[in-house]
Nucleic acid binder design. Structure first.
Lengths: 224, 224
DNA sequence: CTTTTTTGATAGTAATACTATTACATTTGT
DNA sequence: ACAAATGTAATAGTATTACTATCAAAAAAG
């Protein structure tokens, strides 16, 4: 799988960027360093000027790749979910037992992520931290419906529906498969955040992970 | 209850504001109209200048009440959760059966909210819409830990823990009461948002509410 | 080796997010 | 009743943000 990923390009909707950042050294520098700065100062304080200073490039050069920082965040999120989907498809292929399949899939979308060394310019563990703290901001905007129509969130929705399909095999009678999965995927990010910032309203900590909580939840909810 | 609320002031941590907006006509205008504008253009596009123009007041006058728009949003959220807590305490008082109690409590935190006419300057249904779209932005910031220490999120955490206490009476053996409740309260807001903007990843719609989904979930998860 | 594409530097604009100062209005203590 | 203290509003100004336009230099492609 590591080998494979090195040769496969994560596809991102081309309406999200002005120029594909994967096609140049500057583009890859923009992606890699935007992760570092966003992690350091957060998305709200992040500016193209600060990014430009860090990579020794001009602000205007960055605008050649992304219209604004919102689109950059949408790009990073798309890349993230595309990468998750890729891992999901491989991790669940050839697993005959659907319950087993769901567990593997849930682990993937709820676990803490370590850097996948096969992609050079992106540190996935850093990206995961940014997704936890910033992902909801990609769609909690006034432009959400237009951007949704343009397909900005397609991969995310496809990941959710892949999990929904597995749930439907396990318990075809369960009437809330979509809500269950969408609340798990979103909720896992939230529990990771609570674990770091609001310890009094979560059971997750160093020993108990969001994955533990959700695997147990699904076992209780679905008839099998 | 309606009568009572008219005489009771919702208490909000005084570190959130510069001057308590409930103490003057301008303050109440700021609160009431900020809801309308935020609903119209969203938090991200909201500015004190636009608010000032709408209420026929100067930008700088608004800064006398709130340091910045983030603090205003924190204030609105605090007010919201305080109001929810108030309703929660009343709705669950004198209900002997804990399962019944939990259902009532869950209904309150997950349902669609209509305007409570007993508070004049705040339209709760509008506030609810804003909480659905903007609440996570109050804590998904780099300042979250400091602000949490200052008690900005106390009421929210208290609401969660009130529900957790009921769960613990129902099923003392269940090991994830906090995560369950925190993910329900957050998840309900999320499901409301999905219902309006991402219909393909939720089962909630005009006929099925987030409340239905979560009442069913809790029934399946807790032993009783 | 020349044309096209990409990048970088400079400059500029409009909007945002404030702060400082001052004047006017209202309340309060004696 | 009236001066002092406090609250409220308006004006003006600054630094930063979020861009856009232009042009020259460098790199890559044909």
């Amino acid at each position: 799988m590591d080998q494979l990923l090195a040769n496969i390009k994560i596809q991102v909707n081309d309406k999200i960027y002005v120029k594909d950042p994967e096609t140049s050294a500057l583009g890859r520098k923009i992606i890699g360093n935007s992760l570092i700065i966003m992690d350091e100062i957060g998305f709200d304080n992040f500016t193209f000027k600060k990014l430009g200073e860090r990579i020794g490039s001009n602000e205007s050069s960055i605008y050649r790749y992304f219209e604004n920082k919102h689109k950059l965040l949408v790009y990073l999120s798309s890349w993230y979910w595309s990468w998750i989907e890729y891992k999901l498809v491989f991790a669940t292929a050839n697993i005959p037992d659907p319950l087993d399949k769901l567990s593997r899939a849930l682990e993937l979308v709820t676990e803490n992520i370590e850097d996948d060394l096969s992609t050079e310019h992106i540190d996935e563990s850093l990206l995961n931290k940014i997704i936890i703290a910033e992902f909801t901001k990609t769609f909690l905007t006034k432009e959400v419906d237009e951007e949704n129509k343009e397909g900005f969130f397609l991969i995310y929705k496809r990941v959710i529906n892949r999990l929904v399909d597995i749930v439907k095999v396990i318990d075809p009678e369960y009437p809330y498969a979509k809500s269950l999965i969408s609340s798990i995927v979103e909720g896992a990010l939230h529990q990771h955040y609570l674990k770091d910032h609001f310890k009094t309203i979560t059971d997750c900590n160093d020993k108990v992970s969001p994955t533990d909580y959700y695997l147990d939840l699904v076992k209780r909810v679905l008839k099998h």
